[in-house]
Design a protein around this nucleic acid. Sequence first.
DNA 1: TCTGGCACTCCGTGTTCCCGAGTGCCAAGT
DNA 2: ACTTGGCACTCGGGAACACGGAGTGCCAGA
Lengths: 337, 337
Amino acid sequence: MLDERKLAVLRAIVEDYVSTNEPVGSKALTDRHNLGVSPATIRNDMAALEEQGYIHQPHTSAGRVPTDKGYRLFVDRLSQIKPLSAAERRAIETFLAGAVDLDEIVMRTVRLLAQLTRQVAVVQYPSLTRSTVRHVEIVPVAERRVMLVLITNTGRVEQRVIEVPEAVADDRIAHLRAVLNSCLDGCGLSDVPETVAELPDRLPIEDRPVAATILSVLLETLVERHEEKIVFAGAANLAAADFSVGLREVLEALEEQVVLMRLLGETGDLPGLTVRIGSENPYTGLRGTSIVAAGYGSGDKELARLGVLGPTRMDYPVTMGAVRAVARYVGQILAGS
Amino acid sequence: MLDERKLAVLRAIVEDYVSTNEPVGSKALTDRHNLGVSPATIRNDMAALEEQGYIHQPHTSAGRVPTDKGYRLFVDRLSQIKPLSAAERRAIETFLAGAVDLDEIVMRTVRLLAQLTRQVAVVQYPSLTRSTVRHVEIVPVAERRVMLVLITNTGRVEQRVIEVPEAVADDRIAHLRAVLNSCLDGCGLSDVPETVAELPDRLPIEDRPVAATILSVLLETLVERHEEKIVFAGAANLAAADFSVGLREVLEALEEQVVLMRLLGETGDLPGLTVRIGSENPYTGLRGTSIVAAGYGSGDKELARLGVLGPTRMDYPVTMGAVRAVARYVGQILAGS
DNA sequence: TCTGGCACTCCGTGTTCCCGAGTGCCAAGT
DNA sequence: ACTTGGCACTCGGGAACACGGAGTGCCAGA
């Protein structure tokens, strides 16, 4: 049904269209790729490809343009992820290595990815729920106020100011802190509620009200932040691409955390690398855009996701290479810090 | 030179042009505003205004459009800041009140401002150097690693992982923490270097190398963050405005922290409220845009700035009202937290 | 100093026309 | 059974053109 040559034609169409941004005709194809056959033959193949929905012509007497289905086939079977050049890899390393805290790692990552791919980059903060507790700190800041600081193994820091029901002496705070830490050190965040459940019973009775208040805030912190934080960068690249129409919608989608979450979120077929092409993606305002996303994390567990968003007409092999590489490096950085 | 009526004409031109986005002619003016004179008279006034550079006609036989100089006069002398409606004020309060930490306050503020003005909002994080130390925490995280956490009175938290030259027992850490806090509590961040300078001398000699390491990181943290953090939101509003040309440049400027800093930074004439119109602003890519900015802070000292950026053709009275109001509310929230 | 009248200037829109790229199909060739 | 060259056809997009209308500047009169 789709012999070898038809696939080659499709591949050539995608490549040419991506690089020229103009519908590609049979003549141009035989000129730029040596397919060894005449334009007429190509036309027959193109008719077949169109018949099956892989390409489409905007008007009679125009060249062909790949459809979403065509891109899909291209990504799945006709292309190979293009690794980064050594120079690019070095650039990534040096650029990311300079970051001093989590905020900066994320910030640098998203900028790097935007610059590397010349598209909009999106990075999700490492998930709280999948990381583990490194330290819990309780700090008195006023007579009846304490600050709770939670530090995770990914370097994330959460803090809350808590009103406690009564003034508490410093040594009692210190004791509570010690107990908490001995319980929670290394504990997965999703296991915290369980671990903490019967903790008040092990405390002197007079400390229980305070402890309960603090613990409830701690638990709240965990669930509240389950809706993750996401940042993006490179919006200027959108304007550069000929996004004349729909730019508005795309920008709006980018500012909706929820939409972004869903785009990055649902994981795909390839191990770790998800490509969602045009109409495949769940949000109607993004019909004309594709998403290339990957999970990242320290070690083997996926902490969060990152990716880029660009016009359907993007250079998939290069983009996929960049996303995969950046995801790996960020993982390493997080593991090492 | 500019009598009362000419000013009225200028005001009318600005108002009409802002609302219709089309060059406004003498006929339209007499129709929409009752100026009590005929179109011919208006034409004479317009000729005078053009002569002096307040308005400009794109082509012969087109209406007039305000120049930057015209907008400037309008802002300075012809308009009054328009206060928000009660409903809007309530909306601000409830929206900002829900924030739990500094990140969220800033995030909500920038979104709120974008939504309120339908333009791009820009918010600078409260300056570290102008705030004071609320607490310093030193937390051992591994054999030879400690985490330094600095909490300021604005709720900002900075943390750094530090490699120390030798393993340090917990009680020595605790002692160092106590000393640090007793020195620094309430200390203005800019005074920290001085305050801390001779601190190692007051410690047991064996603690000094460790203390020195930690202190140097602490000082580094202070200066590093002097280049402030800035966020923006509402880019979609740019696309909605008819920014057909230059959108690219504007988006690029928005992603350049440095440019944003300068835009917000230099404070202007009105107490706390800066308006920079079109070519008045320092960055060439932003020729077609105006910035309305204000300082905000808890109490009377200005911690940082916020503002909006939009086309020169913006509704200045309303925008200025919104910016001023939001700045005030954020100040209150920060003071109260 | 204001006003009505008048000739003039262009912008934007709509129309028409034409060129060229690209197609589909067919008949002939391998 | 494919492939190929030839050919008529289609249609989009740019150039040329005309025209209506909004707006102007200027002048003479009130």
